[in-house]
Design a protein around this nucleic acid. Structure first.
Length: 216
DNA sequence: TTGATGATTCGCT
DNA sequence: GCGAATCATCAAT
């Protein structure tokens, strides 16, 4: 990509028009930026997870299209924002062609600009925890349900994502956090050793019990 | 209409 | 380390 431009190129729709498990690792190191009246907040992505469509038991699209996951079926570059646990918002970026319903969950990032506005929204806490976790990341950026279905590649300039600069970061791969079904599918990607990566937590209330040998 | 669950976070012991 | 907070969504009745 020939680009000597002062500002890094934004990721186009073609970038997202590929399988989520392929897009996810390439999102690491990219910067998501939100401009609002509160100011500009930018987050460098350090942890993401890929989710498939109807054939991924862990995906919201597993049981087909509903009112909630409708945005997941939109064109690549669409935002899918959902409400969970009665109090938290999580942000996804839709991948592949329209109707496929695959997406990448933004799990954690490092606030590289606008730490002031971000901290004001988040409340007290260590700076490195500002966007450490999917709900924290959404809150730090000021994203909620009103952004569900928004177009990241569209004319609205309030939200934009910039390509990674420099060489690819070292990446680790592992199972997704907090999912019960397809718990072993290694579709979680993070930057090796980055302090802003969230802690791994196995699927909620179905810990597999192995015969013998639990604990030290 | 009712009941259970969830791609989480925070606070307390 | 463990449980509460808190409510939209979905499947079953």
């Amino acid at each position: 990509m020939g680009g000597g431009a002062l500002s890094p190129a934004g990721l186009g729709r073609e970038f997202f028009a590929r399988p989520a498990w392929l897009v996810a690792p390439e999102l690491l190191g990219c910067v998501l930026e939100h401009r609002s009246d509160e100011g500009v907040v930018a987050v460098r992505l350090v942890e993401v997870e890929a989710y498939g469509g109807g054939d991924d038991p862990a995906s919201h699209a597993w049981r087909g299209r509903t009112a909630r996951n409708a945005a997941m079926y939109g064109p690549p570059g669409t935002l899918y924002v959902y409400f969970v646990y009665g109090m938290h918002w999580c942000v996804n970026l839709v991948c592949e062609e329209e109707g496929t319903a695959t997406a990448v969950l933004l799990r954690a990032g490092e606030v590289v600009a606008g730490a002031g506005p971000a901290a004001r929204r988040r409340g007290t806490g260590p700076p490195r925890d500002l966007a450490r976790g999917p709900a924290r990341l959404a809150q730090a950026l000021g994203l909620d349900g009103s952004w569900d279905g928004a177009d990241l590649c569209g004319p609205d300039g309030a939200l934009a994502i910039r390509a990674r600069e420099g060489e690819p970061p070292p990446i680790d791969i592992g199972p997704r956090v907090g999912v019960v079904r397809a718990a072993e599918t290694p579709w979680r990607f993070w930057i090796s050793g980055d302090p802003a990566v969230s802690a791994y937590r196995p699927g909620g209330r179905a810990p597999r019990r192995d015969a013998g040998g639990s604990g030290p």
